[in-house]
Design a binder for these strands. Structure first.
Length: 431
DNA sequence: TCTGGGGTCCTAGGACCC
DNA sequence: TCTGGGGTCCTAGGACCC
């Protein structure tokens, strides 16, 4: 039996904790570059603002609705997330942190789980200021579905029985009530059913979560994939998706960005890729991994249809798996030099570290090249200096030192202060 | 003018081998 | 005129998630 604790409109809720004047207003948080809406308050949802809608379109469409838009402040959200997670952990012995605002908790055998969940929900609200919904079910997919029920019952009275608002336990329902809940749930709201497969299921005449649950698992596998088959089985109460108490090491680490404005020069792209590769290498060392190959990509903006389009990626192998920023940057820059095309408006570039291995595995080699001697000590110093004195204190030379001239950095014009992670940004109480 | 970033898993199909 | 069968490995791309 699993519970899913999920913050409501998480980024917006984090902002509201420090600016209560935002309560009751349509508020959205924007992606990097202040591009599109990635979190919406209930009022913004009620207006009809869609997830992922571009900000410039929202402004055009709702000029008089008093929409408040904020640039994403991921430092703040990460810190608020830690607080919420530590309180949520009180719900059971094992917790899987699934995303910045969601965690699964194993509540098998816990007596009065529903009541406990209600208390934990209240506590999270009181201690962190974040409202959340809690769903409980036999499998992770059912816990997700229960969570959807809890939030929807609160937001749209009449959609589900009102006793499911905020906390919904589908684990101890009689069959007919359980099936009534599934029948009231659109198949598009099932975890694992996205737009594409949703459309295909509908074309087959299926409409609700109950229809999907009653599908033959073998059919799901034949027509779609084992992933869909697992979803069907999970809806029937048979766990197929493992509970991951300890987060597994990442197999892939990416650092990518859209640029604040079109970029045409190779030198700018090299600066950008240097920074991406450095950030990725830092994350790699954090999980004590090594990487054997580095993928670099660049592309134009598919939205600028008047522009000539270009998209290319290249994978550069490293001589042996490494976690050295210098070598990883070198590979990324080499890749960028090879795929760069002059005369185009590049919109986005990035670096992926692929096939990451455990750093404990050491591949032995004869005639070690002088330039590839172990620089683990240097890397450790670099990481600790950057941690202590701030990001970018020590960088690779190709990152450029032109500071203000960097044409490719993102726009963030609507950012709130780092209320919880920076002394200078602390809120001041006045008598 | 302005459209995010970071992941995982699965499948199809090509290359290659015997 | 007629041109095998079976297997593995790798990669690209699709689909999904938040």
């Amino acid at each position: 039996m699993y519970a899913l604790v999920d913050g409501n409109n998480f980024y917006v809720s984090c902002e509201r904790v420090f600016r209560p004047s935002l309560n009751g207003r349509p508020v959205i948080v924007l992606s990097n570059n202040d591009g599109c809406a990635i979190s919406r308050s209930n009022e913004a949802k009620a207006l009809g603002i869609k997830m992922g809608a571009p900000w410039f379109q929202i402004q055009r469409e709702f000029p008089d609705a008093g929409v408040v838009a904020l640039s994403a402040n991921f430092g703040l959200y990460g810190d608020m997330s830690n607080r919420m997670m530590s309180v949520a952990a009180g719900l059971g012995p094992f917790q899987e942190i699934y995303s910045i605002d969601e965690s699964f908790i194993d509540v098998t055998g816990i007596p009065h789980a529903t009541e406990l969940a209600q208390r934990v929900r209240d506590r999270i609200l009181r201690w962190t200021g974040i409202p959340c919904g809690i769903g409980i079910g036999q499998t992770k997919t059912l816990a997700k579905l229960a969570n959807h029920v809890a939030k929807t019952a609160e937001r749209k009275p009449g959609s589900y029985p009102s006793r499911f608002a905020k906390v919904a336990n589908l684990g101890d329902l009689p069959v007919d009530e359980f099936e009534a809940v599934l029948a009231a749930t659109d198949l598009g709201d099932i975890w694992g059913i996205g737009r594409r497969i949703g459309e295909q299921l509908r074309a087959d005449g299926l409409k609700t979560a109950l229809d999907v649950a009653q599908m033959e698992p073998a059919t799901a596998r034949r027509r779609w994939s084992v992933t869909v088959e697992k979803t069907v089985r999970e809806l029937r109460g048979f766990p197929c998706i493992e509970f991951e108490d300890l987060p597994p090491a990442k197999k892939e680490i990416a650092s990518t960005r859209s640029f604040g404005r079109p970029v045409t020069e190779l030198s700018d792209l090299i600066e950008a890729v240097t920074e991406f590769a450095s950030r990725a290498a830092e994350k790699l060392r954090k999980q004590n991994g090594k990487v054997p190959q580095v993928l670099t990509f660049v592309h134009t903006s598919p939205f600028r249809t008047q522009d000539k389009q270009y998209s290319c990626s290249i994978t550069v192998p490293l001589r042996r798996p490494t976690a050295d920023t210098g070598l990883i940057v070198q590979a990324a820059v080499l890749g960028m030099r090879q795929i760069f095309k002059p005369g185009l408006n590049m919109a986005k570039a990035g670096v992926h570290l692929l096939d990451i291995q455990d750093g404990g595995i050491e591949q032995q080699e004869l005639d070690l090249d002088e330039s590839e001697i172990d620089r683990g000590g240097l890397m450790t110093s670099m990481d600790s200096l950057n941690r202590k004195y701030g990001k970018g204190t020590i960088t690779m030379a190709s990152a450029g030192n032109s500071g203000l001239q960097r044409t490719w950095v993102m726009r963030q014009e609507l950012r709130t202060p780092d209320y919880t992670t920076c002394w200078d940004s602390l809120a001041v109480a006045r008598a």
